[in-house]
Design a protein around this nucleic acid. Structure first.
Length: 897
RNA sequence: GGGCGGUUAGCUCAGUUGGUAGAGCGCUUCGCUUACACCGAAGAUGUCAGAGGUUCGAGUCCUCUACCGCCCACCA
């Protein structure tokens, strides 16, 4: 029964005759609004029934979405729609991220451009107002883009990392970890970003290979006139903060010098020579200048030898007053000056070109400067252990599996996490320092009234904010209302799948798992699906500076949302990078148009009054019907299998092949005959199969191309009010008729053979006569399918002969041998016998090659013994068929001579 | 210095329980056959990077090599 929908728009689309081509714009808007209005995106909690949940990775609110986000949505929404159609309670929760540093940077830049002011000119409060303005603006842009992509997410549960809920979650987590001793404050060497003026973690530092120099500098030995120790460095300006020179304890060259003093050039300071295992004797000169204040390794050496730490840099990486004469100079200017001065002093003995890695700040794009600062740290070991175990015991699965190793390797070698950032924008660290007792108190509340230790009210809040990934790490449960005991967090946690890029496994995935295990006692999701980078046509990474970014909205406008989604899904495999190109988008667009026209053709035959009928194998139905229903159920089986294995691309391709290659190219063509039939019952039957199979295929395709499928579905007989909630097709072996598949294949071979022969004989546009000499058991099949043969192969109906005996084959005829039949095309006058002989000879050769190959295989006693019987049987059959073909071809050749 | 990926038709890529290689685009030749030229029909093209091994059988498993790319790593 075809329900009436309470929607004028829908009514119209069902009645109106379809356009000649698919127009995505209108359909996309219409159906997205309809779905949303019908609340299909908002799940109702159903106790006792396991939900399918995907929490969307929150895009940064620093600009518009890029193509990578489109891939994320394409994959996630396909999974969501598939599970929704399977009848599961399905939650796709959208949100966005405040993007700490980059958020702050974007607004700072804007402020400078438009008002010529810095954030400090405005002050914290006013600056934050400006950031919020920006965020509100871009959140809307992003929401619109997600809608355009067709993301079937529950907007009623939309979340932002800076919403009150997540803020509360952040404080709760901080306070808990603080009380557990897993958050502590310590002075260590950290990565300082002179561009953003904040500390950043190791993950936010990129190493970049650069051509630089290794400067060899002599440090005079005190009390030994004329003796020097030569050190090599890539950052000579740091010598201003040197507090020692270190050598390997086993280095014979320097053994007698250990413990002696050197005179630090330029600074005229005495520094000791220390012996440390960390120094490699065979690198450089074997002696290392030690700057504990500005180098991680030197810092460690300094700790071991109790060396003083001298900070010679200002926050903006210029030299401070500890740098003596160089104070005020930018670090790179100072570098040049130091080198110049050393040269003048005769202490620079070598300037060696040297390629090395320089640490850059990911966000600001400038080299970072290691320096010693007091920061808040997360003691990560106790959090990492359960996260590691979850992956090892399989509670957490990775797609593709290889990323499990990436993940576990990182967790096994993890370092404590510096979480404070010297920014305005972000979650303020919920810690108050006491002016009375100098101790720190953390709180889970919005503010703290008095010191936890001495009760003093003379307290002040830490000005820093938290690393943006701290709140991201809580995303799987902060979005569900935690720390409050909510129905959502009880029902939807843990989530099902986390789909994101492999580039943020450490930043994000690992941290979500650590926090999830610690605070919720369970993994935040069972499966991590990792996609690769979407690159441009040349395989280059897309970036604004290169100008090769593909804007999803522009693409959607040009090709349609479905085309973009289908392209993204079918041109990528999990974990691998993919390339985006116009030709692929065109192909997907054409596919949408192809199925549009198939539907159009079918409906034009008058199907609007038909009742819905599911594809069903009917033993008395014509071969083509039994064949297409069988093919359809084969497809259903494969698609289900592939989706369960997260092989979305492969599944999409199969649906494409089925719809285009089988349904349109063969079934519709074969069906045309019966659509014109005078027999009404016959016509209805073929219409039922056409619409039923197409409707089923549209269901399968819906997760990949939601809009066009929904639009078409309403043009076909259907049950229910929307495809988005139509039941997902279930595999059914009983609906697969193997004999029908084989028979149709036999018919197809003959049709293809005739078409091919006609082309070769250059008569492809003419109807020809044909004599089909069928295998006796297949004679009946060809007789029954004579009309199909006539129509699809271009044979003249009156001149078609079907027989299983032919005492004298026609001499003036082209002969083609298929497994099922030998077909003679009498082309009197048009046939060049010499050409025909050559053609036959070539085919004979081919058959012989095949026979040889099979015989060789079968002759191998090991093959017969060890290969499975089915494989051996298949090979025997192949050999027999080839031999049969060879015999027929040889006979024909003989006849022609 | 470790680790991971890629190397398949001119181009872009599929090919997941090892059974003898596919798609799209492009190319060649036909075609407006009453859904579609965003189309249809026919066709050409591959020592599956190289070498070795396991196996009756390897694009698919193992080892090594080459080139390309990525990730991790405190050699100044």
């Amino acid at each position: 029964m075809s329900e009436l929908i309470d929607s004028g728009e829908l009514e119209k689309s069902e009645k109106k005759e379809m356009d000649k081509a698919y127009n995505p714009q209108a359909a996309e808007k219409k159906w997205y609004d309809f779905w949303e209005k019908q609340n299909y995106f908002t799940p109702q909690i159903k106790e006792g029934s396991a939900p399918f949940t995907i929490i969307m990775p929150p895009p940064n609110v620093t600009g518009a979405l890029h193509i990578g986000h489109a891939l994320t949505v394409a994959v996630e929404d396909a999974l969501i729609r598939w599970h929704r159609m399977c009848g599961e309670v399905t939650l796709y929760l959208p949100g966005s991220d405040h993007a700490g540093i980059s958020g702050e940077t974007v607004v700072e830049k804007l402020l400078l451009e438009t008002e010529g002011k810095t954030k400090n000119d405005l002050g914290r409060e006013e600056f934050l107002n400006r950031v919020w303005d920006w965020m509100h603006k871009y959140r809307d842009v992003i929401d619109d883009q997600l809608r355009a992509l067709g993301a079937s997410c529950d907007w009623t549960r939309k979340c932002f990392t800076m919403d009150a809920g997540p803020q509360k979650a952040v404080r709760k987590v901080f306070k808990t970890l603080f009380d557990e001793g897993l958050i502590y404050r310590a002075e260590r060497i950290v990565n300082w970003c002179p561009g953003s003026l904040t500390v950043i973690s190791d993950l936010e530092v990129d190493m970049e290979e650069e051509d630089g120099f290794l400067w060899h500098i002599r440090y005079p030995v005190q009390g030994e006139e004329g003796r020097f120790v030569t050190v090599a460095t890539t950052r000579p300006e740091t010598m201003l903060g040197d507090t020692a020179v270190a050598v390997n304890p086993n280095d014979a060259r320097y053994k007698d010098l250990v413990g002696k003093m050197l005179l630090l050039p330029l600074m005229h300071r005495e520094i000791p020579i220390v012996a440390d295992e960390g120094v490699e004797s065979d690198f450089g000169t074997g002696a290392v200048k030690v700057t504990p204040g500005h180098d991680p390794l030197d810092f460690e050496i300094g700790q071991r030898h109790h060396l003083p730490i001298i900070n010679i840099m200002n926050p903006n990486a210029s030299i401070n007053q500890n740098g003596g004469a160089y104070a005020g100079l930018d670090r790179f200017v100072a570098r040049k000056q130091v080198v110049k001065d050393l040269e003048a002093a005769g202490l620079l003995i070598k300037t060696e070109p040297y390629r090395h890695s320089v640490p850059y700040s990911q966000r600001a794009g400038v080299p970072i400067e290691p320096l010693v600062k007091e920061q808040w740290w997360v003691k990560i070991g106790p959090l990492a252990q359960p996260a590691l175990e979850a992956a090892q015991d399989g509670r957490l699965k990775f797609v593709p599996e290889r990323f499990k190793k990436t993940y576990t390797d990182w967790l096994e070698n993890i370092h404590d996490w510096p979480v404070s950032r010297q920014l305005f924008w972000g979650h303020r660290i919920p810690v108050y320092f006491c002016n009375n007792c100098n101790k720190a108190s953390a709180t889970a509340e919005e503010t703290l009234a008095k010191c936890d230790h001495c009760g003093s009210t003379d307290i002040w809040q830490d000005p820093d904010v938290l690393d943006t990934w701290f709140s991201s790490g809580l995303w799987p449960f902060s979005t569900l209302g935690w720390p409050d005991q909510t129905a959502d967090s009880a029902y939807f946690y843990p989530g099902s799948v986390m789909e994101t890029g492999y580039d943020i496994i450490f930043f994000w995935v690992a941290r979500m798992v650590m926090f999830g295990m610690h605070f919720m006692g369970d993994v935040p999701f069972h499966t991590v699906y990792l996609h690769g980078l979407v690159r441009d046509e040349k395989g280059e990474k897309m970036s604004k500076s290169k100008g090769n970014v593909v804007d999803p909205l522009e693409t959607i406008n040009e090709f349609g949302s479905d085309a973009l989604r289908f392209t993204l899904l079918t041109s990528s495999t999990p974990g691998n990078d993919s390339k985006m190109s116009r030709t692929k988008l065109l192909d997907s667009r054409n596919f949408a148009n192809k199925i549009w026209n198939a539907t159009r053709f079918i409906t034009l035959s008058g199907t609007s009054e038909l009742n819905y009928q599911a594809p069903k194998l009917e033993t008395d139905a014509p071969l083509a019907d039994r064949w297409i229903v069988s093919e359809y159920f084969m497809l259903v089986g494969e698609v289900n299998r592939l989706l369960e294995a997260y092989q979305l691309g492969e599944a999409g391709r199969l649906i494409y092949d089925f719809l285009w290659g089988e349904f349109c190219d063969w079934y519709i063509e074969a069906a045309k005959l019966r659509l014109n039939s005078a027999d009404a019952a016959e016509k209805r039957r073929v219409q039922a199969t056409l619409t039923g199979v197409l409707e089923g295929a549209l269901r399968l395709l819906h997760p990949f191309m939601p809009f066009v499928t929904e639009e078409l579905w309403h043009n076909l007989p259907h049950e229910g009010e929307s495809l988005i909630v139509a039941p997902w097709p279930q595999p059914d072996e009983s609906q697969i008729d193997r004999a029908a598949l084989a028979q149709f294949e036999a018919l197809r071979q003959v049709i293809r053979g005739i078409r091919n022969a006609k082309t070769e004989a250059k008569v492809e546009n003419k109807k020809v006569a044909a004599i089909v000499l069928a295998k006796p058991q297949l004679k009946e099949l060809f007789e029954r399918e004579a009309e199909t043969l006539v129509r699809l192969a271009g044979v003249e109906a009156q001149k078609l002969t079907i027989t299983d005996t032919l005492p004298t084959p026609p001499a003036q005829a082209l002969a083609l041998v298929t497994d099922a039949a030998t077909v003679y095309l009498p082309l009197s006058g048009l046939l060049d016998l010499e050409v025909e002989r050559t053609r036959l000879a070539k085919e004979i050769e081919e058959a012989q090659r095949e026979i040889e190959k099979s015989e060789k295989m079968l002759a191998n006693p090991n093959f017969a013994e060890r290969a499975p019987a089915a494989v051996v049987g298949k090979e025997r059959e192949k050999l027999a068929t080839a031999q049969e073909r060879l015999a027929k071809l040889a006979q024909r050749l003989k006849d022609l001579n």
